[in-house]
Structure formats: C-alpha cells, structure tokens
Design a protein around this nucleic acid. Structure first.
Lengths: 190, 190
DNA sequence: ACCTGAACACCGTTCAAGT
DNA sequence: ACCTGAACACCGTTCAAGT
C-alpha cells in the first residue's frame, strides 16, 4: 500500500488549504483538468508541477513518465462509464446506450482518442467496460468469436465517429445501421 | 506558378546528385519518409532540414509551419487512394473496396489517423475521395442526406478500426455488418 | 528570392543534493 | 521517503543578416 503517510496534515485547524504532499491520484486529477481545459498540448510536466505547487521533477517520483501519466488519466476517464444492466434492457438497447455514453465521454474529453495507445495494454477501467460490452454482445446470441467481432465493430465505429467528428445524427443512424447489420448476422445463424 | 527557377541544375553532366534548391513537394516527400519510418515523433523540423541538407529555418520559407506540413503530407497520402469505377462494380462492392483500401492506407502510414485534424478543412486529395465515396452511396439509392450519413458511417468505422487496431477479420465482418445495416435502411424506404 | 546562424521560449527527463 | 535545482538534450518558430 502506498496510501498512508507518517506525518499527516499537521494540526488540522490550520489556515489555508495546507498543500498536502503529492500523491498519484491528485496528480492524475490535475492532469485531467489540464487536458480537459487545454487539450493534449496543455499537459506539460512543468505546468502540471506548477499547478500542484511543486516542480516538474517531483512528479517523477510518483509516476514513471508522461506516457504512463496519460495512460492513468485515460483509464480514470473510462472508469466513469456507466454499465447498463442487462436484466433491465435488451442487448441492443444496452449496447447502443453504452455506445452513446462512450461517444459523450470522448466529446467531453477530446484528448482521449488521440491518446489511445496502439501498443500498450489498456488499464483496468477500460478493460472492465470492454468486458461488459462483450457480455452484452454475448447475450445477443453471438458465438464467442462473433461477440468479440461485434464488440470491436461497435467500439471502432464510436471511436471513428469521434475522430472524424461526425454529426450527432450520423452517430445515431450509424449505430442503428451497425446494430441492424449485426442482427442480420445473428439471424443468419442455423 | 512556383515551379520554374532561373538557375536550374548547372551543366547537367555534373558529378554527385547536385542538391537542387528546395521546393515544397520535395519537403513533403521527405516528411512522409520520416513519418513512415519513425512515426509522428520522428518528424522534426530540424531533422527534416538535416535530411534535406539544409537548416530547419529554410523550410519555413516554403511551408507556413509544422501543422501545415502535416496537412500537406496527409493530403498527399489520401491522393494515393484508387477510385473504384461504378460502371464496373456495384455500389456495395465499390464501397467495401474503398473502405479496404483506406484501411490499408492507414496501416501503411500509421501517423495518418492521429494527424487527422478535427477543426481544419481537409485538403483536395481527401476531399476528392470523400466525394467519390459519397457518389457511391448515392448510387446505392439513398436520399442525399442519407448518402451523406452512410458515407460518414463507413469512414468512421474504418478510421475507428485503425485507431483501435482491430483484427483484419473484424474489419471484414464489421464492413459487412455496416453495409448490411445500410442496406436494410434502403430497403425500408417507400 | 531564398537561405543561414543565432536566438527565444519552451519541452521531457535525470540526478545529485537536500530534508 | 519525498522533494528541489540545475542540468542535458532536445523542440518549433522567428528574424536579422547574408547571397
């Protein structure tokens, strides 16, 4: 565990905000703030240090490097995504809901898509969402491997819609087309 | 016109390659070489200058800035895309062929997707391809606005497939699903 | 018209040294 | 254990000055 520190906030009845020692969660939150406010170029180790009332070098004690920080920040955002309950809605509704929430997430955090790593593995936040969408596709009646393809198709379409900045109407119609297409594949099964 | 220069290659029977004066086409080609070889971080005005046997500052006479250079390089790649002939194949075949060529293009030039501008308008190379794909969708029997949506859906899916690095099989199945979905929309028309 | 050299205002990262 | 200061090796871009 890394959470405890020996000399906590001294006193407690102190005056101003009492800038606590750094911890990685705090760094990640500040990084996200910078990214949301100023885009991917707005995040700079130096500026981040300044924002946290320290030096850029101090950050390196808590985080390996900037790339790692981006990974952590991205995963923290993915963790925001709600997971629709399959007991309550059908697979198609659940899938489209997740897709639309993903789209909204990317809109809110425009730095997320460009930051998607091609090589490195995803973090736990994203992995959990991916797994949930896979479960939704499985519930649709796909074979295991087709469910995988279906999930990839849906995510690809949403991500691409963000990169290409399609209109909201195109998103909705596109999602319909994608799900119609997936459904005909299920229907074609023996 | 910017093409002519008063003092061309002197002589012609000279010894080594006779490093000609810079021109923007040459700069773009060199930039693409750097990008292909080393990714988006491999392109540096300084390295590019070195590669062209000049200084970084020299490039700024021919190109406004790095962003502009990226735009020009991207558009040059888009211009590579073949345009399927609608006289020879059906719309679905043509559309899928274009989509697959786009995908291959993005695979060959992995820096292309991250470089896609959200704000700035596309160059003529890309615009021409977009228009052709729109024509293909129109030939499918969509209304004008639905053809637009269809095109956006197809491009979004292909771009997203590259960002998320889906498997080739997922690409093929996804394209099928997308086109099936689009087709059911056409079929639902009065 | 076209290019060079040097400068400016930045970067990410490391590392000795401090507490 | 955690942070600071200073340094290193870079960036993109500008601009006087050269030819």
């Amino acid at each position: 565990m890394k959470g405890e520190r020996q000399d906590a906030v001294q006193g407690g009845a102190g005056g101003r905000p009492e800038r606590r020692a750094l911890d990685s969660e705090q760094i990640i939150r500040a990084a996200i703030g910078l990214l949301d406010a100023e885009g991917v170029d707005g995040l700079t180790m130096r500026r981040l240090g300044e924002l946290l009332d320290t030096t850029a070098a101090a950050i390196y004690w808590h985080v390996r490097n900037k790339q790692e920080l981006m990974r952590l920040a991205s995963d923290a955002i993915w963790a925001e995504l709600r997971l629709p309950d399959l007991e309550e809605v059908g697979w198609r509704e659940a899938s489209i809901a997740m897709a639309q929430e993903m789209h909204a997430m990317f809109q809110r955090h425009s730095w997320l898509v460009p930051a998607m790593p091609v090589d490195a593995p995803y973090g736990p936040g994203r992995t959990l969402r991916d797994d949930h969408l896979l479960a939704i596709c499985s519930a649709a009646g796909f074979t295991a491997s087709d469910a995988e393809h279906a999930r990839e198709t849906i995510v690809a379409f949403v991500v691409g819609s963000c990169v290409t900045a399609t209109s909201r109407r195109s998103l909705v119609l596109g999602l319909q087309a994608v799900h119609d297409g997936l459904q005909t594949r299920i229907a074609a099964r023996p």
